[in-house]
Design a protein around this nucleic acid. Structure first.
Lengths: 107, 107
DNA sequence: CTTGACGCCTAGTTAATCTAGGCATAGGGT
DNA sequence: ACCCTATGCCTAGATTAACTAGGCGTCAAG
């Protein structure tokens, strides 16, 4: 997948994964890869800064956890985050409708 | 429409518009706005450089025309351009399938 | 004791798009 | 005459999202 295509859609993906429940960064990456069947195999350098940004924006909250001697930062969707996700979904649909209209796809 | 979302999809849109026949830059912008019902209202500073890039890549060919005392550069899809468009469409579908899979949309 | 999976992080780079201007013709309004 | 808008083209530089390329550390397997 051409990376440029992802731009502007990353937050949608991250917030979406976290609707299933709190998760740490590494597992978010795995889950994204698993759900998309390899289409979205994002480097850590993409995901971690994005999670930090979303937390700074108040859309996620995080806390440290330890499992098997490894420390993890676990992220959870906040109420504003859920609202932002809903907005992202709406915008995404708007976007795809626009593309389809231009392409002449009735779908 | 958040502009970031467009990134990586611009070529798809431009090439798509030109499947309807040759057109000049300004009309491509209008057509994009019309077909998408205002969703894609792109600044000239976005479209003109993109058309130049596509022409440099051999996906478009251009020629000057004059109408009503105004000069226009008319762009037409080349054979490689049509092939690139087909590839773009496939990649776009791949992209949307990935998103939908992550969002849990069966669509 | 090295390799790989797990797990986190960030400084600097890249590159696509946008901003903000410039230039020119035509026509309508005042 | 003058200005404004629509039409039509262009580009240098700014913006900014995502990526590259590293770093650090734990643990289990071979």
């Amino acid at each position: 997948m051409n990376r440029e295509r992802l731009k502007g859609h990353l937050d949608l993906l991250l917030l979406s994964v976290l609707t299933a429940g709190p998760a740490h960064g590494y597992s978010v990456i795995s889950e994204l890869r698993r759900r998309s069947e390899g289409t979205f195999d994002l480097p850590e350098g993409t995901v971690y800064p994005a999670l930090h940004r979303l937390e700074d924006a108040g859309l996620l909250s995080s806390s440290w956890a330890t499992a098997d001697g490894r420390r993890r930062r676990v992220y959870a969707l906040t109420a504003p985050g859920a609202a932002a996700l809903a907005a992202e979904r709406t915008e995404y649909r708007h976007f795809t409708r626009g593309i389809q209209a231009v392409l002449g796809w009735s779908a």
